[in-house]
Design a protein around this nucleic acid. Structure first.
Lengths: 217, 217
DNA sequence: AAAATAGTGTCTGTGAGACAGTATCGC
DNA sequence: GCGATACTGTCTCACAGACACTATTTT
């Protein structure tokens, strides 16, 4: 039986943050190897002695680059091929992660607005595009956009985040009705946001987990 | 910088076929290596000299095992971990494939009804369960179930396939209305199925590609 | 004619968008 | 008071389920 060289296996993370009314992608300049000097998604190899699975690798990468531990992180898919990495036949298991509010740690991570990305290393531009399509698709039917917000938020902030992710305008009263009926969030009694003219009720997710709807937002 | 052994990378396929009113999974007895003698999903290693990417590997595996070339095949995800393969830290990129109608070639492939699976090798039972969840989820919002049917089918057959995949009962007239309005299928004029008391109009997909709906089936 | 399945027409409840109207704050 | 944003109430339209009804075949 013929044997084949093992493909290169890596893990990459599409790290997204909400800032200034748009989504920002976290990237790192490559220090060596192919595409040295260019920006790339944070990623790396599996550490077989400490990573239980590829998601653990992704979370470790996120932790190392941002010092953030609590993060929404899901597998996007695996991108592979003979030509995507000049070192040889490669596959990368890609995760996307949504960071709640602003991260504090100052690291080498550079942030780019998602709508004005520069050219990235490897096939990372295509990967980011696939991630955005997934996020948009899931945003329609789940509470995924809420994971871009801090733990407490107002109704307006939640709607605006959905509008940003879905790139559509949502009717305010219909949105409130739907979210209320689905029992997705609960008010934090006595807490109001004072960012706007009339203070707004603050809410939090009832269950801090991804949740699918049976109807469109 | 510490180096790590490369994880084992494989490709596996969840191969599904519609027969006798239920879904059947295609499995193969393992001839050697771990779990020898047990049934497992068809799969294998990437042939770096002939496979353009992991999907090409999956399609090659399907072709080798069933002699079927035209098949609906999508990536499910990558399953990984230190303990799922006794040979070491491993990752498998899993695809699910829906076979249209009955396949003809007689091969070593064994078929098991999806609701009465035996214990499979590795973590393949968990993988099959994940595939079924994906298929059910996509069935709600896409024409995915149609890929289990032959190229031509009746309205009843289409509805029954949706009912089977989604495990719910669908209202016949509402289903017809929705499918008609979405322009998903087109009648083949002059062709009728004669399997039932009153011959039924035969239809085919307007576009033989996966298509998402903006409303639930 | 009876049985069986295909296919149509219509009623009704529910949910969504639209939008007007009210509430509560800072200035 | 005025501007601004938060929040509520209500009208109307469209779609989904329910189900009765008609159509076309075999036996």
């Amino acid at each position: 039986m013929k044997t084949y060289p093992a493909p290169i296996l890596t893990i990459d993370v599409v790290l997204l943050e909400l800032r200034q009314g748009t989504l920002w992608l976290g990237v790192l300049p490559r220090e060596d190897g192919p595409f040295s000097g260019e920006y790339a998604l944070p990623g790396g190899f599996v550490h077989t002695d400490e990573d239980a699975d590829t998601k653990a690798t992704a979370l470790r990468v996120i932790r190392e680059k941002t010092e953030i531990v609590d993060v929404f992180c899901e597998q996007l898919g695996t991108f592979s091929g003979a030509n995507r990495d000049p070192r040889g036949w490669s596959a990368t298991v890609v995760y996307y992660a949504l960071i709640r509010g602003k991260h504090t740690a100052e690291t080498a991570l550079t942030w780019m607005p998602i709508d004005a990305l520069k050219t990235l290393a490897f096939d990372h531009n295509a990967i980011v595009q696939a991630a955005m399509e997934r996020i948009r698709a899931k945003g329609n039917w789940s509470n995924l956009p809420a994971f871009l917000l801090p733990a407490t938020f107002t109704f307006s902030e939640l709607r605006q985040t959905y509008e940003l992710v879905l790139k559509i305008n949502l009717n305010d009263s219909a949105f409130r009705r739907k979210i209320e009926e689905m029992g997705l969030i609960e008010p934090i009694v006595g807490q109001k946001s004072k960012l706007t003219a009339r203070p707004a009720q603050l809410f939090k997710l009832k269950r801090d987990a991804i949740l699918s709807f049976d109807r469109r937002i």
